[in-house]
Design a protein around this nucleic acid. Sequence first.
DNA 1: ACGCCCAGAATAAATACGCC
DNA 2: GGCGTATTTATTCTGGGCGT
Length: 201
Amino acid sequence: MAGRDSLPQPPEQSPGDTGAGDDVGVRLKAVRKLYGWSQRQLAGRAGVTNATISLIEQGRVSPSVGSLKKVLDGIPISLSDFFTLQLDGNPQVFFRAKEMPRVGEGSIEQRLLAPDNEEPSLSLLYETYPPGSDTGPELLTGEGDVGGVVISGRLEVTVAGESAVLGPGDGYCFSSCRPHRFRNPGEVDCVLVSAKSHPIV
DNA sequence: ACGCCCAGAATAAATACGCC
DNA sequence: GGCGTATTTATTCTGGGCGT
């Protein structure tokens, strides 16, 4: 007689060793490690046994929705967040100067933070404008918003016909679709940190 | 303390059966 | 045929124990 799980299983798979089960197990293990808990610690928080956690993580069982919810009750994470969580390992958090590649061309030095982030929601640049350098005679346009804060030196920013010379501590923020241009009118390098809400590369 | 394994209990779904 | 109940079966889950 058929049990409650009458779906045909590939011969090489053991009972309960479904792809979905693997995924849940891998996710559960990743989330548990994220919080630095042992199987017993998580089991204690969730009100289940450590064996249950072990079986789920190994993909030996495909937990019911009720059981999974019970386990996740022991973790500060919702069911939806659990299934949408990115498991690409621990993304790099800190970056040394030498790990920030130079992007763009010309005399202006622009170094991109988190270059390995394939789909960034935010691009951060460490920029150095030598004296007299600028982004060119043609006004720039793009997508998203841009913003920045001058660290040292002076920076002339022109946006849609309006210009201002910014010094240390000053900043700018505008929609990149507005024609704009940057120039260093000073005698020393201008260093700033800028951000763009659209990928640079 | 950790993760894993095992045997048994509990649970849920499919099926069989009897009654109307 | 439709409905309710009993039985069967597969799966999940627990408690205890093992090796590291």
